[in-house]
């Protein structure tokens, strides 16, 4: 398949089952809501080293938030429920509780409700106040700034992580520009996040390593500086490869986001230095969800 002179590989992205939750963060103004959200979703690019993959889903207007203040919804994904619960509590305590004017609310309903502020309330040292409003329990924790408000629980749902595609091109600047265009389009899609810095990852990995203790290492087949040294996937003209990883609440959410991103990148065409689009997989044996590029773009 070829779009605007860009070759689309007949391959697929391989994705995995995850657990996810959504938290709505509000604050006195959008800047402080963003500060809280950035802290909460910081160091959350990959479950390999961070425990969770998290990101900002979108900004919320004052009429979309429970307390009528500006807000941001964030999504957090983990490989299991236990890790997700641990990470959520840690990040609530270190990032939201500490952030001036921030409050946290459940962003998703589910049969599986996990702690948002249920344990954090003990920070109040006995002065915490519970309030049930509209059937939901909130905790008010006295702090130096005033009162920290958090809902007691938020929902945990089954989700998918690891949707991806690779953008191959002639230069770093051109590949980055195409990925930036893709990310801008993907940000408009609800229920997904792109957890890497700016949504883009430059250091895709393969499973295993020559070093026994490493379970992942650089994806040498796509490293332009290793052309000639390894069994390279790259042609002579390809000098840069970047990847976009996308996690979503459902298969269709990821598919929609990938389509938006792929189309935005392809819109630039081969004239913008983009030669090829591919995707990362493990032969289809590890992840149950396969996102076939040709099907997505047909």
């Amino acid at each position: 398949m070829e779009i605007n002179g860009i070759t689309i590989d007949n391959t697929f992205a391989e994705a995995f089952n995850m657990r996810a939750t959504r938290v709505i963060i509000t604050a006195i103004n959008p800047t402080w809501a963003r500060n809280a959200a950035l802290a909460m979703t910081g160091f959350a690019t990959s479950v390999i080293g961070c425990g969770v993959e998290a990101g900002i889903e979108r900004e919320l207007s004052t009429d979309e938030t429970p307390d009528g203040r500006p807000g941001i919804s964030v999504l957090l994904f983990a490989m299991g429920s236990k890790v997700l619960m641990q990470q959520l509590e840690t990040r609530m305590g270190q990032c939201i509780l500490t952030c001036p004017t921030a409050a946290a609310f459940a962003g998703i309903e589910s049969e599986d409700m996990i702690s948002l502020g249920r344990h954090l309330r003990y920070f109040g040292d006995g002065y915490q106040i519970s309030k049930v409003i509209g059937g939901k329990r909130y905790w008010r924790i006295p702090i130096m700034e005033g009162e920290f408000l958090t809902e007691e629980t938020t929902g945990m749902v089954r989700a998918i992580g690891g949707g991806n595609f690779l953008v191959l091109g002639k230069s770093q600047a051109q590949v980055l520009a195409a990925c930036e265009a893709a990310i801008e389009a993907m940000k408009q899609v609800p229920n997904v996040i792109m957890p890497f810095p700016g949504g883009i990852v430059r250091s895709g990995s393969k499973v295993g390593s020559k070093y026994p203790k490493m379970f992942a290492s650089t994806n040498d087949a796509f490293c332009p500086t290793l052309k000639g040294l390894v069994k390279s996937e790259l042609d002579d003209e390809t000098q840069c490869v970047m990847e976009i990883v996308v996690n979503g609440l459902t298969f269709d959410d990821i598919k929609t986001a990938m389509k938006a991103g792929l189309e935005a990148a392809c819109r630039l065409g081969s004239g913008a230095g983009i030669s090829r689009i591919s995707a990362g997989n493990y032969g289809g044996k590890l992840g149950p969800h396969h996102f076939k590029l040709h099907e997505i773009l047909k």
Binding site: D67, G68, K131, I133, G134, R140, G146, E147, F148
Partner: peptide, 13 residues
């Protein structure tokens, strides 16, 4: 005197 974050929720209810 205080501005309490839970009051907007309560009053909305």
């Amino acid at each position: 005197q205080h501005q309490l974050g839970f009051l907007p929720l309560l009053l909305r209810s």
